[in-house]
């Protein structure tokens, strides 16, 4: 037995709990009728430029943006904050998770102008507590999903500082990892709760 093994307790079965979090329920079977025409996913948003104020990682920024720019575009291209990743522009991967006034949002689905006057925290603006727990648990492989996961874990534990492992397994399903780091993300989150550093 190696030290990385973890034990999980399984309670009795309740159908509602059984279904919760299962990707299969909303499975892709409902898609059959879609037609072949929708190739470009460009959103037609009114064009124009606007000046917005953002507080990014504690620093006030006055930025000139296009009204159609997403927050993710502005972070990545204007501020070179590339921790939040463009994986799925519909937000379904969680890779662009940032905190807006402390709450997790997908920067890929937020228009920059809608964030005017708000406080944005990206993975680069967090202290090392959550990243260090990820490193200790080896909760990253290629690492492309990792910053989004780090911010999601931070937001989740801020809200649920004493989360049980079951709550962690049920509450962190907004992020996709293709390399398969989930077991270690759970381990990292559990260690953070145990370490009591989320108060």
């Amino acid at each position: 037995m190696t030290e990385s093994k973890r034990k999980v307790t399984h309670g009795g079965f309740h159908r509602r709990a059984f279904l919760k979090g299962s990707g299969a329920v909303a499975a892709a079977t409902a898609l059959q009728t879609e037609v072949a025409s929708a190739v470009q996913q460009t959103t037609q948003v009114a064009k124009g430029r606007m000046t917005i104020d953002l507080e990014v990682n504690g620093k006030r920024q006055t930025l000139e943006v296009e009204t159609r720019d997403t927050l993710l575009d502005v972070l990545r291209y204007q501020l070179d904050l590339t921790g939040a990743k463009p994986v799925s522009l519909d937000g379904s991967s969680g890779a662009s998770t940032v905190l807006l006034d402390g709450k997790p949002i997908m920067a890929s689905t937020a228009l920059a102008v809608a964030c005017d006057g708000k406080r944005v925290t990206t993975v680069e603006g967090l202290d090392d507590t959550v990243p260090a727990a990820f490193v200790a648990a080896d909760a990253q492989q290629c690492g492309f999903c990792t910053p989004g996961f780090v911010v999601a874990v931070k937001a989740f534990l801020d809200k649920n500082p004493n989360a049980s492992e079951t709550a962690i397994r049920e509450g962190l399903n907004g992020n996709i990892c293709r390399c398969g780091t989930y077991s270690h993300v759970i381990q990292a989150a559990v260690s953070l709760v145990k370490g009591g550093s989320n108060g």
């Binding site: 992020n175 990892c177 398969g180």
Partner: peptide
């Protein structure tokens, strides 16, 4: 028809159960 991540289903964190590697 399911070439977006909202429709292309992958396992999520809550789906993988307890995994033990030896």
């Amino acid at each position: 028809v399911n070439a977006e991540l909202s429709d292309y289903k992958l396992a999520r964190l809550g789906d993988v159960g307890e995994i033990i590697v030896e």
